Structure formats: C-alpha cells, structure tokens
Computed example of a mutant assay.
Amino acid sequence: MPGRRKVGNLTALAVLAVLVERPMHPYEMATTLRGRGKDQDMGIKWGSFYTVVRNMERHGLIAAVESVREGRRPERTVYRITDDGRAELVDWARELVATPAAEQPRFRAGLSVLAALHPDEATALLHRRLAQLEDGISSERETLAAHAQVVPRLFLVENEYDLTIREAEAAWIRSLLAEITSGSYPGLAEWRAYHEAGAPGSGPTGGGGTTT
C-alpha cells in the first residue's frame, strides 16, 4: 500500500527496474535510465540519486557485489537486486497499475481559478495551450510510430498513455472553447459582466472548487 515502502521515492523503482536486468554501478544505472527516458516517466531527481541508492542498500533492496575501477576514475560499487528488491519491484508495479491515486496537475490548478481571467483572455490562453498540445501530439505520434518499428509495444505503453491523455485534454479544450465562443457556456454572461464592471473581490464565483 502507498506509504509503506522502505524507500518510497520513485527513483528507487527505476533503479530496481534496471537492476533486474543485470548488476550495475550507479553511474551505469543513471546512464541507462536517461537513455530510456525513465527520468521523464518517474521524475528522477539526479541530485539525490546516489542517496536513494545508498538507502536501498541499507534496506536490503539491493546489495553490493564488487567494486570496479576504470582507468583513473574513482572506484565504483556494483550493485545487484536482492530477492526483497525483486518482490518490491513486482508489488510496487502492481500497486501503480491497479490503484488510482490523486494527482495535482498544474493545468487543473489553473482551471480552478479560471474565473480570475476575463473570458476573452481565457479563450486566447486556451487557444494557445491547444496549439501547443496539437504540435506536441503530432510530434509524439511520429516518434511513437518510428519507435514502434524497432521497439516492442510493451516497452512503449507509457508513451501510448501519454499520447492518449494529451489527445483527451485537447478534445476537452476544443469542447470548452466551442461553448465559450458560441455563448452557450453556463454563466458566461455573468463571468463577462463581472470583469467588465471591474468589481473587486475573489471573482464571480466567490471561490470554491467546482466553479469553472
């Protein structure tokens, strides 16, 4: 369950996912994770990477197997995944796949205070966001199609998810913009009148979480 992990940072999950393949030293782990884009999937904080690795060793998820030296570089410790680490990897994957968790996207925060903007400005900003989303979607589709030629689909599933989420967001924004520009959006007249009157205060909604 969430909160019971010995090392709860998602960086630990990323480390387990590469060490299950073979033993590596931390620099090789980091290089492999960067090369596969796992820093984007899991929000890896590279400044704390070595601390996470040490914590994982302390809790028995990984174990040192040898120290190696390459030329004049400092000696590096090679780690392997332990049985406890394998069990943690599988259990963590099960939790993340099966259990929805509350997340706080920045866009949702912006929508929660959309009433602070004049409808015309909100519309312009949403159009700007939509244009950027559409450009990104087009690029991601091309990249995904290219990767699908050489990479098994199983290892692109997170990219498919990202693309689907962005496509859904773009479709929702188009729908919202259609309502605002057609004048059919509920409360639009009051929203517009509030800003055009220049009234002080918290906005036409007076706060709350379901105002837009």
Rank of each mutant, 00 (worst) to 15 (best):
residue 105 P to E: 02
residue 205 T to E: 13
residue 171 A to Q: 09
residue 119 P to L: 00
residue 204 P to Y: 05
residue 13 L to G: 12
residue 21 E to T: 15
residue 121 E to Y: 08
residue 183 G to H: 00
residue 168 A to S: 11
residue 167 E to T: 06
residue 181 T to N: 04
residue 188 L to D: 02
residue 92 W to T: 11
residue 102 A to N: 03
residue 61 L to F: 06
residue 57 E to L: 00
residue 153 R to P: 06
residue 91 D to R: 11
residue 206 G to W: 08
residue 77 T to N: 03
residue 40 Q to D: 15
residue 190 E to H: 03
residue 69 R to L: 02
residue 97 V to S: 05
residue 163 L to V: 04
residue 144 L to K: 03
residue 6 K to G: 07
residue 139 S to F: 00
residue 161 Y to W: 03
residue 47 G to C: 03
residue 184 S to A: 09
residue 190 E to Y: 00
residue 22 R to V: 12
residue 118 H to S: 12
residue 53 V to P: 06
residue 155 F to T: 09
residue 97 V to Q: 04
residue 99 T to W: 03
residue 197 A to I: 13
residue 42 M to R: 08
residue 130 L to H: 10
residue 204 P to T: 08
residue 205 T to A: 14
residue 39 D to E: 15
residue 180 I to A: 02
residue 72 R to F: 11
residue 160 E to K: 02
residue 136 G to E: 06
residue 7 V to Y: 04
residue 188 L to F: 03
residue 33 L to I: 14
residue 129 R to M: 12
residue 185 Y to V: 05
residue 83 D to V: 13
residue 108 R to E: 06
residue 190 E to K: 03
residue 44 I to A: 14
residue 48 S to I: 13
residue 140 E to R: 06
residue 128 R to C: 05
residue 192 R to D: 10
residue 136 G to S: 08
residue 143 T to A: 04
residue 83 D to R: 10
residue 141 R to Q: 05
residue 117 L to W: 07
residue 94 R to N: 09
residue 81 I to N: 03
residue 119 P to N: 00
residue 175 S to Q: 14
residue 168 A to P: 03
